[in-house]
Nucleic acid binder design. Structure first.
Lengths: 110, 110
DNA sequence: GCCACCTTGACACGTCCTTGGTAGAGTTCG
DNA sequence: CGAACTCTACCAAGGACGTGTCAAGGTGGC
């Protein structure tokens, strides 16, 4: 099987070993480990690392951003909350309200 | 009338005036302007600012994160690319090697 | 047994983000 | 008119991010 050690993986993917560990720490690409804890990068991980790199270059995105996107996937409640906020009714452009009274808001909780 | 100036809006929403401008700069909550350029916060904006604040407190999120979420909504291609990456085939559960039997081999230089 | 390589943890540095302040100029309103 | 407020555009301190590097200790293969 074609598994590379971290330095080899770094060499073929263009990341530095340091960054491979960092990327793993962000939860983006974690490699399986040998019995003694060595990271072993297989074709799957290498591919993932390369496409990740492509992502960063093509769109102007940073690792932290992708980390956040990952978080959105892992915490659907967060994603839901954000969606809810973004989709919150835009309210009509301020109408002249009769006599500065203050309407209680109703939230359109779906 | 139910429009507040920036300082008043700040007072009722808990943000600082400075942050209201910053939030606007991030594209999260922008208020209409008076003829002379003064920001005018109506109930809609105030509500939005309060719920935004709630979002940040409840989930552990920062303005920049929400800014990125906004970007994901505005750039579907980006969101698509990210989704694609996350959903990339998990590859077969690359089998555990019995440790230590990796063989040196030529790296396939791209 | 050697020596190269891996692991984690820590420090360091430059850059960007966050947030507050301040300054100069225009606006509102009593 | 004049005090109080707003606007934009900066400077600045504190923190986070990206990345390199070094240290101390375990592992792999010849």
């Amino acid at each position: 099987m074609t598994t590379l050690t971290i330095n080899e993986a770094a060499a073929t993917t263009g990341w530095s070993p340091r960054m491979l560990r960092y990327v793993e720490q962000l939860g983006l690409v974690d490699s399986p480990r040998s019995a003694k804890g060595y990271r072993l990068y297989g074709p799957a991980q290498l591919q993932r690392l390369r496409t990740l790199r492509a992502l960063l270059e093509e769109h102007d995105v940073e690792l932290g951003d992708i980390g956040f996107a990952l978080r959105l996937r892992r915490e659907p409640e967060l994603a839901e909350a954000l969606d809810g906020w973004f989709d919150a009714e835009p309210r009509r452009p301020d109408r002249e309200m009769p006599d500065g009274d203050w309407l209680a808001f109703e939230q359109d909780k779906h």
